[in-house]
């Protein structure tokens, strides 16, 4: 069963320079207990996706059409305000690149955690709340939970803060975690620990994660499935191994070919000229047409369809599925 289903989503922004098209996703599903990677460069719409799911879009940015369905309920049309408030921030939570932004610096970890637990379990007495807080810290594998509970967020390292945030998310009963570049500021050794934690929580608690990252290798190590965003469009999605070993969109292929991996040492990296199109002025046809090595006339004239390569592997390309 899918915990999150996105259909024909379109997110637009109104600015003084005109209307900008920020995100357009035809189909994207996240199964329960799945880690879905969303990769793309800056400006590709990754963070907009996170904010759309969380309902945190800036005031001049709106989802103009489509649906984001969480367990059968459309989050965009949650005219019942209560629904959105009940789900977002509780069942769906988000972790950011900068965990300090979400941790109130005047409270200790204990206070932060206990507050969330009390709200989620009003029936708990203080002893039980305390026990639950400790349990949560153990769950996110924070060493020395007793000591950590007494600390203030600024006394913790970046990796520990992310773990505290995840513990808070889990305390509020999170089923879906949106991670927006949450490991970007961390050292690789610490980053690897957070990845392992996400895998662990998926296995133990069936936690689903939308793992947003600009590093495709990072997403590939932790995610079952990957979606690639380019210029605000989901251009390819499918099982992680398949998208990487048998990628069908020319952008995905160029992107992978440009990674400085050990095998390419000493050779120049292939590059794609040009820039991704202006969000204020998207091209009529395929948004990658201007840089695509296998472009045809129709690519410039009409929007490409979403083609199925294999079960669960889709590509937004006129020549989808064919290698050049």
């Amino acid at each position: 069963m899918n915990i999150l289903e996105i259909r024909n989503l379109s997110v637009k922004a109104r600015t003084i320079l005109g209307t900008a098209s920020l995100l357009s996703i035809q189909v994207l599903d996240l199964g329960a207990g799945e880690i879905l990677g969303i990769v793309g460069e800056s400006g590709s719409g990754k963070s907009i996706l996170a904010l759309t799911i969380m309902g945190l879009l800036p005031t001049n940015v709106r989802a103009t059409s489509g649906s984001v369905t969480y367990r059968g309920q459309d989050l965009l049309r949650s005219s019942a305000r209560g629904l959105s408030a009940r789900i977002r921030g509780k069942e769906i939570t988000m972790i950011f690149q900068d965990p300090m932004a979400a941790l109130n610096p005047v409270f200790t970890v204990r206070q932060l955690l206990e507050e969330v637990i009390k709200e989620h379990h009003p029936d708990y007495d203080s002893k039980r709340v305390r026990g639950a807080a400790l349990e949560m810290l153990q769950l996110v594998k924070l060493g020395d939970p007793e000591v950590t509970l007494q600390k203030y967020p600024h006394e913790l390292s970046g990796g520990m803060r992310q773990r505290v945030l995840i513990a808070m998310a889990l305390s509020s009963g999170a089923k879906l975690l949106v991670s927006d570049e949450a490991t970007r500021a961390l050292d690789v050794t610490i980053q690897a620990g957070i990845l392992k934690l996400l895998e662990d929580l998926r296995n133990k608690l069936d936690l689903s994660t939308v793992f947003i990252s600009s590093n495709i290798a990072l997403a590939a190590t932790v995610c079952e499935r990957i979606g690639v965003l380019y210029a605000g469009e989901l251009i390819e999605s499918g099982p992680a191994r398949e998208v990487i070993a048998d990628s069908r969109h020319p952008y995905t292929r160029s992107f992978l070919a440009s990674l400085p991996v050990p095998e390419r040492k000493g050779q120049p990296l292939p590059i794609i000229a040009g820039r991704s199109p202006d969000p204020l002025n998207r091209p009529r046809g395929c948004s990658f047409a201007g840089r695509c090595p296998i472009v045809e006339d129709r690519c410039r004239a009409e929007k490409p369809p979403m083609l199925q390569v294999s079960d669960g592997h889709d590509v937004l390309c006129h020549k989808g599925g064919t290698h050049q």
């Binding site: 060493g143 050794t189 690897a192 620990g193 990845l195 190590t221 050990p262 095998e263």
Partner: peptide, 25 residues
Amino acid sequence: EALMAAVPMIHASGEVSDVKPLEGH
């Protein structure tokens, strides 16, 4: 060893290396 084991890498073959965290600070 620990540093290199923690780096996620996609090899030219399409193979994805697994990552191993380093405990402690």
